[in-house]
Amino acid sequence: MQSGSRGSSKRRNPRGIKGVISLISLREGEKGVMAYAVGGFGLVRRLAEMGLTPSVEVKLLRKGPFHGPVQIEVRGVGLALGYDVASKVFVRPLKAKLDD
């Protein structure tokens, strides 16, 4: 798996919505709007409870080395997701703004 390649076959978004990529495909500092999460009922529900609900804005703060944890900011709070969990969250990337 390569973390840099957007839309590689393994990252293809399962619901096939256009313009949606996996959270781990965002670059550090880049923002996205959450589209959906895939995975078990428990995981999707847990993510929602932590604030990762559809259409919320997410900022990728940094990615841990060697497929380590992915740190994001959502609803004003920092959150670290395991690499595997982060790869199951799909977002629509936002164009970088000047204030970043």
Partner: peptide, 17 residues
């Protein structure tokens, strides 16, 4: 098109927001 707890959590977060 989402599990019901996600739908409800979304709304609750909407109010919190």
């Amino acid at each position: 098109g989402e599990p019901s707890p996600v739908v409800i959590a979304s709304e609750r977060y909407g109010l919190a927001n």
